[in-house]
Amino acid sequence: MAKAILQLGALTCPSCMTKIQKAVENQDGVSNVKVLFNAGKVRADFDESKTSADNLSDVITDLGYDVLKVKVKENA
């Protein structure tokens, strides 16, 4: 398992949050999704054998939100 931290552009509508949350959660191998509305960040644990941080970034971009930075932390 690894943890992805995606920095998005500023989020303004609370409904964006639910949207991103559900879209990311629906990806295979993703758990513990947390959308930080005010910080404009998404944190999620994911299974590297099933998906990648870049894939999550694409999912969010497809919804119409800018992904500014992607960080991945390997969990020991």
């Binding site: 509508c13 409904s15 949207k19 559900k22 629906n26 919804l63 119409g64």
Partner: peptide
Amino acid sequence: ALHAFSALKNKVISIE
């Protein structure tokens, strides 16, 4: 409408 549609795709009924 686009916002409304992408929300609906994720089963969210939004203000949009």
